[in-house]
């Protein structure tokens, strides 16, 4: 009835995006994109280990610094606003970027517990040029089926940052971009209307 398979996979994406699997510990300094993804996931395992009686908000608070460290939030925010980014005032742009980080941390933080303890295999890395590469990996889901997870990694300065995560072809960035564009256009092109809605979700 819904795009059910798809939605399930997005959720898995979400869980995985937020690194809920087990990996052998690796050297701290990421020499290449694949090593970077290993570093991110092993860090996430220690930082995001589920505690008893945790609320969604508490998990979001744990996740947020990891997102700020490993995800290219400014670029993700720009991409998700799409053609509305240049239309937004600098204040709106800044506020959107800040609210978006909280929104994603809340949305994906609570899914962590479900997706811990999976085995991830890092496959090939494809150089996309222009300091961007895609790291392909597969994760074994609890039901035993492997899921494809593709990481889009940008080199920003001398650090690697995640720009997008795709699970089974479903892109986190593209999905939210479409969703946000729809909200903005239904509110007469108002970016602040979207910001208000995201804040509402954070409050609830």
């Amino acid at each position: 009835m819904l795009a059910s398979m798809s939605s399930r996979r997005l959720l898995i994406a979400a869980g995985l995006a937020l690194f809920g699997w087990t990996l052998a510990p690796v050297a701290p300094a990421a020499a290449d994109p694949a090593a970077f993804i290993q570093e991110v996931s092993s860090k996430a395992i220690t930082e995001m280990a589920p505690a008893a009686q945790e609320t969604d908000q508490q998990r979001a608070i744990k996740l947020k610094p990891l997102m700020e460290q490993y995800f290219d939030m400014p670029a993700i925010a720009r991409y998700m606003l799409g053609s509305y980014w240049p239309k937004a005032t600098p204040e709106e742009q800044a506020e959107f970027t800040a609210v978006l980080t909280d929104f994603l941390a809340l949305a994906y933080g609570k899914r962590f517990a479900t997706y811990t303890g999976h085995e991830m295999n890092i496959g090939r890395v494809r150089d996309e040029g222009d300091r961007r590469s895609v790291v392909f990996s597969t994760v074994k889901l609890p039901n035993g089926e492997p899921a494809r997870v593709d990481w889009t990694i940008d080199q920003v300065g001398d650090a690697y940052k995640i720009a997008d995560v795709k699970v089974e072809g479903l892109s986190l960035a593209a999905t939210h971009r479409q969703e946000f564009a729809s909200v903005i256009s239904r509110n007469g092109g108002s970016v602040s209307a979207l910001i208000d809605m995201l804040k509402q979700k954070l409050g609830s």
């Binding site: 795009a3 798809s6 939605s7 999905t175 564009a181 239904r186 995201l198 979700k201």
Partner: peptide, 19 residues
């Protein structure tokens, strides 16, 4: 978690088909 569930489903459907 969605602020526009219809748009989310529409996007996921297309991406899934494309995949």
């Amino acid at each position: 978690g969605s602020v526009d569930f219809y748009a989310t489903v529409r996007s996921l459907y297309r991406q899934h088909r494309d995949d």
